[in-house]
Design a binder for these strands. Structure first.
Length: 261
DNA sequence: ATGTCACAAACTTTGTGA
């Protein structure tokens, strides 16, 4: 199974590139974040034409998550138990069972600034996600928690730790929240470093991408059973090039599940 | 190192969020 996750920063703006990417990379399952689309406007039919069933959770301008699959898409769940809001719950999580894997597409709150109430929301959200993931891990299906976590887990996951002192995405409590998730028995699947970089996100501004100044904040967290099935993982940084790219590149994980050749 | 992008409403410009 080829499993991927991609923050597309508006599915409307990115649809041509997403369709091209599906055709060339041929993932079996693709998790999307920041679709910025209300469910009523989601392009299910167009994706179906491309060979993918899809489920989505969104309400318009901000946030929005989805899962695309060509290996089945069952037991869909939008949001999760005790999901915090800002102040109301947003559209930041969707889960489905696809080809024998329990797949989550999550868009973790940004946090905005260390002293901003949004940071407390981010930490609370990650805490509630941990509780929900713990519950999911009690089920027999292998679990993949995929998405934009808006946290760079280690100093190696940012282009220059010194540039991030006092910033979100690298602070101790944010990294601890990721550690707490991993402590459930999840593995942070490490993509192959391409051009020596593990990054999945580059700010649009200041030519950051072309200077190689990025962050690894898009993660696939795999249960033990799933981690053992990983055969390859990479960041498709080519998808960050060219005309009208997202500011994130997809993370692609190749799995050899029991029974798969 | 805040130089871009996407979106919508205050709508040919600004604000918000990232």
């Amino acid at each position: 199974m080829r499993l991927a996750t991609w923050n597309v920063n508006s599915l409307v703006a990115r649809m041509p590139r997403v369709l091209d990417w599906l055709a060339s990379v041929q993932p079996d399952v693709l998790c999307l974040q920041e679709t910025k689309l209300a469910d009523a406007a989601f392009p299910h039919a167009e994706l179906e034409q491309a060979g993918y069933a899809s489920v989505a959770s969104g309400d318009g301008r901000y946030n929005g998550v989805a899962i695309l699959s060509r290996v089945g898409i069952d037991a869909v769940a939008r949001g999760f138990a005790d999901e915090p809001g800002f102040p109301d719950p947003e559209h930041r999580a969707i889960a489905a069972s696809c080809g024998g894997v329990r797949v989550w597409s999550v868009y973790v709150p940004n946090g905005r600034a260390l002293q901003d109430p949004h940071l407390a929301y981010k930490l609370a959200w990650l805490g509630a996600l941990r509780a929900a993931a713990e519950h999911e891990l009690a089920a027999p299906e292998p679990l993949a928690l995929c998405g934009d976590f808006n946290v760079a887990p280690t100093d190696s996951d940012v282009w220059d730790p010194a540039a991030f002192v006092g910033s979100t995405h690298v602070s101790a409590p944010e990294r601890q929240a990721i550690e707490d998730l991993l402590a459930l028995g999840l593995t942070d699947v490490q993509p192959r470093a391409l051009k020596g970089e593990p990054f999945t996100y580059w700010d649009y501004r200041a030519g950051m991408f072309h200077k190689g100044l990025g962050m690894r904040i898009d993660l696939v967290l795999a249960s033990a059973q799933l981690a053992a099935a990983v055969r390859d993982a990479y960041v498709d940084r080519d998808a960050r090039k060219g005309t009208k790219p997202s500011d994130h590149a997809p993370v692609v994980v190749d799995l050899q599940l029991p029974g798969e050749v």
